[in-house]
């Protein structure tokens, strides 16, 4: 089987910092990994433009998929456009080590299809409130990584980060939860280390994708209907 990049999905509600997380990963890992990004937007290519403007990747490594105002469909039900975008980019600028697929900001239930990505990060932020974690959903409960973003803002929005992380870990049966802020280098390092490990496992054929959309059998998540 030909070598192909690790495909990592980044999902989560609007405004939680998905684009910024991706820009941070690119900025910190571009020296060690060949990276490409596919964005899924609600209105044309705003996220792609943000990434291009940030200058962390060349324009050829950033592609936008237009989703007809249906971003959750494009990453789960009908992945053809995204798959073609990823495959085209790997063909045109590859070989790549990592393709980040950013979902359009949608609700808590959106997760990536196992046909599109190998692993996924679900992004929340403290500004959304501490109780979002408790509301749950397949992404929060079963994504490969739950990132609680913008933790530097916690004092201003009256959120207890430790408690939010602990509740996240409980909801996820112990699967990883990362408190993240691009203003706190140690948290960024942790994120990069997680991706580095995953990319290594993928390259070595050790990574087995799990689908958060499928019911979990190995642990009991505290998932309530939203």
């Amino acid at each position: 089987m030909p070598r192909r990049a690790l495909r990592l999905g980044v999902a989560g509600p609007v405004g939680t910092g998905k684009s910024s997380l991706i820009a941070t990963v690119c900025r910190n890992m571009a020296a060690e990994l060949e990276i490409g990004v596919v964005t899924n937007d609600i209105y044309t290519d705003e996220d792609a433009r943000f990434l291009r403007a940030s200058g962390v990747l060349s324009a050829a490594r950033i592609r936008a998929v237009e989703t007809g105002a249906c971003p959750h469909t494009a990453i789960r039900d009908d992945i053809t456009m995204n798959l073609i975008a990823v495959e085209d980019m790997e063909r045109d600028v590859g070989p790549l080590d990592l393709v980040l697929v950013e979902s359009g900001g949608d609700n808590l239930t959106a997760t990536f299809s196992p046909g599109l990505v190998d692993a996924q990060v679900f992004v929340l932020d403290v500004a959304g409130g501490g109780d979002v974690v408790r509301k749950g959903g397949p992404g929060i409960a079963r994504a490969d990584l739950l990132a609680v973003n913008k933790v530097d803002l916690a004092p201003y929005v009256d959120v207890d980060v430790d408690r939010m992380v602990a509740e996240g870990a409980a909801a996820r049966g112990g699967a990883p939860v990362l408190a993240l802020s691009r203003h706190r280098p140690e948290t960024v390092d942790e994120l990069c280390a997680w991706i580095r490990r995953l990319a290594g496992d993928h390259a070595a054929g050790r990574h087995t994708p799990t689908d958060p959309g499928a019911p979990a059998h190995h642990h009991h998540a505290h998932v309530r209907a939203t």
Partner: peptide
């Protein structure tokens, strides 16, 4: 219309 070939993105 649910045929997963990306038609939903067009008007």
């Amino acid at each position: 219309g649910r045929l997963p070939a990306g038609g939903y993105a067009h008007s």
